[in-house]
Amino acid sequence: MDEIFGIPAPLLFGQLLLGLINGAFYAMLSLGLAVIFGLLNIINFTHGAQFMMGAFAAWMLLAWAGLGYWWALVLAPIIVGFTGIILEKLFISRLYKLDHLYGLLLTLGLGLIIEGVFRNQFGSSGLPYRIPAELSGAWDLGFMYMPIYRGWVVVAALFFCISTWLIIEKTRLGAYLRAATERAELVQAFGINVPRMITLTYGAGVALAAVAGVLAAPIYSVNPQMGSNLIIVVFAVVVIGGMGSILGSIITGFGLGIVEGLTKVFYPEASATVIFVIMAIVLLARPAGLFGRA
């Protein structure tokens, strides 16, 4: 078991794991985008900035308040989600009657503001965030060494994704949410406070981005651009998966991460572009996306 297809096994599995981790972030971010889009009809361009805010929140909690990783995992999404709620109340809620594209432009502007403020405050070189002691080290799996933290990221991301899916598909709250996605006026007529639900949904989608940010903080250096580089890929992931299905965006996210990891092994030159190429192919074969409704 030293070589698979002429590739050294540790290299192959190492890249697969990296791909899986990227896939975890793709899945969490595209899931948040899909949830927000479903109810608000807005593509949240601020999502990358909010992912970055999650990572910075973790860093600030540690540096300024002495609260470690586990606290950050709980507090950062609440804090960032709350800022999301404020943004929705102040700005985004004014646009629901307009074309989708205004929402896109507004959230793009908000993202620029947030990113610029963080760059002024913290520079663009990036801040280190240490892996928590409980999760440092590596396991010897026999065929490769797996850093425990990386395994944890995949497991945690799966947990958050599946929880979101269960909440939306299996709970009463999720039923309201799905109903409001289809026909908001009718749900409101049944006495449910739809505007508040929209606000909270935006907050929840943002919180999901922030969780991804906290998970990413020890892997990537915490810097103001970390979100904007990721978010364009996530948009391609969303186009590939289609935003119709929650489970679909999870599968697409993880799947594309793995494909990207494998490309790094077999044809490294294309690893940065492979997802965009897949997007082009999917658009040709199935314009609505793999899981989308036309």
Binding site: L106, L108, I113, G116, N120
Partner: peptide
Amino acid sequence: VTVIQGGIFV
């Protein structure tokens, strides 16, 4: 400048 641009967008 980025912040101002974002502000103009908004």
